[in-house]
C-alpha cells in the first residue's frame, strides 16, 4: 500500500508529468510530497526536526522515542535523537534571462519552467522545515528580490514572483552574484538555478565573492537534453537567444566540436566550483526533480554536520 502510494507520488517527480500540471504552487507541493513519499522510510517528523543519531536508552527518557525496530534486531533499547534547526536561511537565485526560455522539441518544458518548479519545490520544502527562504531573480542584473523569511506568507510571495516569464535579456551572472554577496547580511544557503551561459571566469569570480562572504552555495546547472546531445541533422538555421546571432549549418558536421565545447565549459565550471567547496549539480530538464531535492538535502545535511562539528570543537 505504501509502495503504491509512493509510486503514485513518484510520477510527480517526472518532468513530463509535471509539465502537464498547471500552477506552480501545486506543482511544488506535489514534487515535495512525492519526494518524501517515495522515501517512505523517512524519519522526518514535524517541522524543523532533523534526525541526528541513536543513543542507548537511559532511565527517564521518553519511551516514545525508543526505536522499536532497532530493539527488534538487537534486544536493546535505543533512543532516536533529533536536532531542530531554526536559523537556516536559504536564498533561491533563479536565472530568468532569455536563454532560459529555450526548450527543445523533445523537452517537456523550458529551462525556465524547470528552474521555477525546482525553486518553488525547494522553497516549499524549506518552509516546511521552518527555514527562512528568500528569492532572487536575475538576468542582466538582479531583478526581483524577496528577503529570506519563514513567515507563513513567504510561500505565497515566492510563488508569485516565480510565476513570471523569462525575460529577454542577457545573462550577467557575475554582477548579480557580486550584488547578492553584498546584500546578504548573514550566512545563507544560496541555490543558484541557471544555465550559466556566461563567461565562466567572471561567473567563478562572482561565486568566489559569495564564498568569501561565507555563504554556502549550491550551483544547479540546467541544460536542455538537446544541448547536451546535439543530435540534429540536416541543414539548420540556428537562431541564437540573447542576441547571439544566426548560423546556417549542417549540425552533424559540427557535433563533435560543439560537444567538446560544452564539455569544456561544464568541466571549467565544475572544477571551479569544486575548488571553492561549492556543490555543483548538473542536470537537464528531463531529469526527475528528486535529483535537485536530494542535492538540497545533502547540502543541508553537510552544513548541519559542519555546524555540529564546530559546536563540539568550540564547546
Amino acid at each position: 500500500m505504501t509502495t503504491e502510494t509512493g509510486a503514485g507520488y513518484r510520477k510527480f517527480l517526472d518532468p513530463t508529468v509535471l509539465s502537464r500540471i498547471g500552477g506552480l504552487e501545486l506543482r511544488a507541493r506535489l514534487i515535495v510530497e512525492g519526494y518524501f513519499t517515495g522515501l517512505h522510510h523517512s524519519p522526518y517528523r514535524g517541522l524543523s526536526v532533523e534526525y541526528a543519531d541513536h543513543r542507548q536508552y537511559v532511565q527517564g527518557d521518553d519511551i516514545r522515542h525508543i526505536d522499536w525496530k532497532v530493539f527488534g534486531r538487537t534486544d536493546k533499547y535505543y533512543i532516536k535523537e533529533y536536532e531542530q534547526e531554526t536559523n537556516l536561511t536559504c536564498l533561491l537565485v533563479v536565472d530568468t534571462s532569455e536563454s532560459m526560455s529555450f526548450r527543445s522539441a523533445s523537452s517537456p518544458w523550458s529551462k525556465h519552467e524547470y528552474a521555477t518548479s525546482l525553486a518553488a519545490s525547494l522553497a516549499y520544502l524549506s518552509l516546511q522545515q521552518g527555514d527562512a527562504v528568500g528569492l532572487a531573480l536575475f538576468d542582466a542584473g538582479l531583478g526581483e528580490f524577496v528577503r529570506p523569511s519563514n513567515a507563513s506568507t513567504q510561500w505565497k510571495t515566492v510563488i508569485q514572483e516565480l510565476e513570471g516569464k523569462a525575460k529577454g535579456a542577457k545573462t550577467s551572472l557575475a554582477a548579480v552574484l557580486d550584488d547578492l554577496a553584498e546584500r546578504l547580511p548573514r550566512r545563507t544557503l544560496v541555490f543558484i538555478v541557471s544555465d550559466f551561459l556566461d563567461d565562466v571566469a567572471s561567473t567563478l569570480r562572482g561565486l568566489r565573492h559569495l564564498r568569501y562572504r561565507r555563504h554556502e552555495v549550491v550551483a544547479c546547472h540546467l541544460w536542455d537534453r538537446a544541448e547536451l546531445t546535439f543530435d540534429l541533422s540536416g541543414p539548420t538555421m540556428f537562431e541564437g537567444l540573447e542576441g547571439t546571432g544566426r548560423l546556417l549549418t549542417e549540425p552533424r558536421t559540427l557535433r563533435e566540436r560543439y560537444l567538446a565545447e560544452v564539455e569544456r565549459f561544464r568541466s571549467q565550471l565544475q572544477s571551479g566550483c569544486s575548488r571553492m567547496m561549492i556543490d555543483y549539480v548538473s542536470f537537464d530538464t528531463s531529469t526527475a526533480m528528486d535529483v535537485a531535492l536530494s542535492a538540497y538535502l545533502a547540502s543541508r545535511a553537510t552544513r548541519m554536520r559542519r555546524r555540529t562539528a564546530r559546536g563540539m570543537t568550540g564547546g
Binding site: S99, M100, S101, F102, K111, D195, L197, D224, E227, L232, G234, P235, T236, M237, F238, E239, G240, L241, E242, T244, G245, L247, T249, L254, Y258, E261, V262, F265
Partner: peptide
C-alpha cells in the same frame, strides 16, 4: 529548418 538555440556560444 529553423531552430532557436540557447547554447549558441558553443556552436
Amino acid at each position: 529548418r529553423r531552430v532557436v538555440w540557447a547554447a549558441m556560444a558553443f556552436l
